[in-house]
Design a protein around this nucleic acid. Sequence first.
DNA 1: AATATTTTCAACCGCAAGCTT
DNA 2: GAAGCTTGCGGTTGAAAATAT
Length: 338
Amino acid sequence: MGRSPCCDENGLKKGPWTTEEDQKLIQHIQKHGHGSWRALPKLAGLNRCGKSCRLRWTNYLRPDIKRGKFSQEEEQTILHLHSILGNKWSAIATHLPGRTDNEIKNFWNTHLKKKLIQMGFDPMTHQPRTELVSTLPYLLALAPITDTMDHNQSLDEHALGLKLQYLSYLLQTSNSLSTNNSYDQNVITNIEPFTMLSSLKENNPVIELPQLHNNNNPNSFSHGIIAGSGYQPLHQQSNMLSDFLDPQVSFSSHSCLNNEQGQGTNYAIISQGDHTNDSSNWIITSPAPSPILPNSTGISITINPGDASSSTSSYGGGISSYWPELFFEDPIIMNQLS
DNA sequence: AATATTTTCAACCGCAAGCTT
DNA sequence: GAAGCTTGCGGTTGAAAATAT
């Protein structure tokens, strides 16, 4: 099976549609029908690919599209159908006249998913969340049994102690998670063992936070995201860091997302510098990170393009699988801050 | 009022199914 | 049956808008 050629191969326009383009598309379809989407742009006098025209028509211009907020009834229908069908947005859309699959998908991702998480349900299974418990083996694998361990204590006893503390932690946090947390489930799932380790560390010197080494500089620590079952250098994993490392891009600020308050809190600013992956070149201005936030679940970065124009981009929410404490374990950065 | 942060959602992309040659 | 083409789907992105500080 072949693939349709990419839109921009022929210099076709991309991005937001203008009113003029909308009118051309509407008038053409009203007069001739859409026919072959591939042939339509030329016939309608549009410098777009057929795929873009189809998407614009089906998701926005079609006359039978219902706009505006989803009703309570529609919301219930989506929740019910999602529990049966999963992410089959087009199938769900067939039960909601006037709503597009794209609109339903967006509504799910921005509202309903968060709502279920807040209520303590897994948004995929619609069952009460159990992934906290499932992270236990992962947690135990991460918690090193070190020489500082009480030698009168067996490994089993030690593991049992950890399990008990973990379960205690779950009991303590389940309430706040269900009432306060509005973050992406993946972030919660990924970050939780580390939040817990951080918490345990306060009461138990045996436990050490895992350290992440910079592949490019074995003598220093690196920034990292938590991906799946282990660490990966951030610059290999995230678009965020590819911008971060782009010398054409400067940063006005970055902040960590506070799990408890749901608000961003500045902890450092990196300004006009050589943003290579050699962190010794980074310039940290203000404010000082005080204190390290134990409940941070992510990072949000606002980027000013190199030409200092006013437009900014921010990274937050779903991709914020970043563990800021590692940042402050970087001896070079800590030295600069002190 | 200015700036920072978060949320929203239109539009994009890649993939795959189904149809045609 | 193989190759090419078209359409539809679901995941993701990022600019703009909204909100918070």
